[in-house]
Design a binder for these strands. Sequence first.
DNA 1: TGGGTACGTAAGTGATCACAATTGTTCTCC
DNA 2: GGAGAACAATTGTGATCACTTACGTACCCA
Lengths: 240, 240
Amino acid sequence: MKTPKLPAFPRSAGVTTHDYAFERLRQAIMVGAFPPGTPFTIRGLADALESSSTPVREALRRLTSIGALQSLENRRIVVPNMTPSRFEELISLRILLESHAARRAVAHLSDRQIDAIVAIDDAIEVAILAGDKAEALIANQEFHRKIYMGNPDPVAMPLIESVWLQLGPILGIAMDHVTQLYVIDRHREAIKALRQRDEDAVAEAIGADIREGIGGFDKQAIGKLLALAGEEVGTLGITS
Amino acid sequence: MKTPKLPAFPRSAGVTTHDYAFERLRQAIMVGAFPPGTPFTIRGLADALESSSTPVREALRRLTSIGALQSLENRRIVVPNMTPSRFEELISLRILLESHAARRAVAHLSDRQIDAIVAIDDAIEVAILAGDKAEALIANQEFHRKIYMGNPDPVAMPLIESVWLQLGPILGIAMDHVTQLYVIDRHREAIKALRQRDEDAVAEAIGADIREGIGGFDKQAIGKLLALAGEEVGTLGITS
DNA sequence: TGGGTACGTAAGTGATCACAATTGTTCTCC
DNA sequence: GGAGAACAATTGTGATCACTTACGTACCCA
């Protein structure tokens, strides 16, 4: 049981090996490619990325500091474990931070930017109808990001992404066990409020979107998901 | 103009060079030892810490990912610049996150833990009366941290510390130009609310504490502080 | 048969070196 | 005297190696 396999990721020129490794791992974790407990080794990843240990170590250290990975006392690096109460904390943080970020972005978003957000929402619907869960997930994150990044000083964005990263693993498990994604019409509500520049309504719509989306899992459901994940760890997503 | 000088820091046994470098730099930045724009070089820090570049690079990378430092396009690493609007964003995030974290910790704090928090508040007052601004600052952070860490799943704590780190540089400047610290009786209010297990009152007291503390600087005051810092950069805190 | 020890393997850590890119300096020419 | 080019110094990047620690397995003895 060495290192998990990585989804492909394009590497543009001029990017350092370190940045590439970091981004690739970050994306993979954020979309739930690795269940909680997945171990990461420096040498294994260096082999997988066809580089040496130095940039990989730096990437793992960075991911650890933003909460995406956890450094055990053994110095082993793993995907953090999830508990129902930690899940609930993370969801409450998502609602808190993203309602706030959305509210503070409203005044800065131009009509053209809102049009782009609408386009992303359309892409989400297309992905859902096509049954492409991974694509829907990425587009959904892009929808939220585009709103919050309207703020010229998006200092909250790294914090929000840290929470996303911590929810990634459980998200991946949920995606594997949810038969059908449903269309979230809270996005329409948020868009309407954005066009009206109604800060309270935008914040409320984003909060409701999270609550009714991933936040809709109650403690029992999370417990079930974690049990399912427990069965699968070691047989899925792990090479050799 | 090479690297900034570092305050001393105890290194306990069993700690890796990397962790030591990271913690030492982190502490220094959090208490405002470096004004915005201060450059950091790997070799300079490695010399200062009497180690090699590998652990220092990892520490700098970690600090960059949590917002404490900024990586320029030149690949130079500096303390991020501050603007009045970014400052305002950071303060609003502090209020948001810390009110929330305080509220969610209330139910978990034992009477003994509250006693420890009171003791820290006393230490703050002692430090203020003694005119020891740095010590007062550190004790104040400890006061807040002790409250929020009452939560058994303190997932918000790293996010809060990220905001503290980003406010550190301006905090350091403010400390140099504030003649006298005043005693914040909002802490007493928070303690009283803690003892009564009144979540709303605790959240309100913490929010008010931040608003009336560092959050009390308005945009004009921040502009003045930044101008003062501009004069001093290059002559203060920089060696050779 | 059970537990403890010893050994081999795997993995993290940190120092060093070669290379590339950037920056700073100086020298020359107009 | 000033602008530009060539050169030198500094710095970041990544690969490699030696060292130490943690883990797993097998062996030995009670």
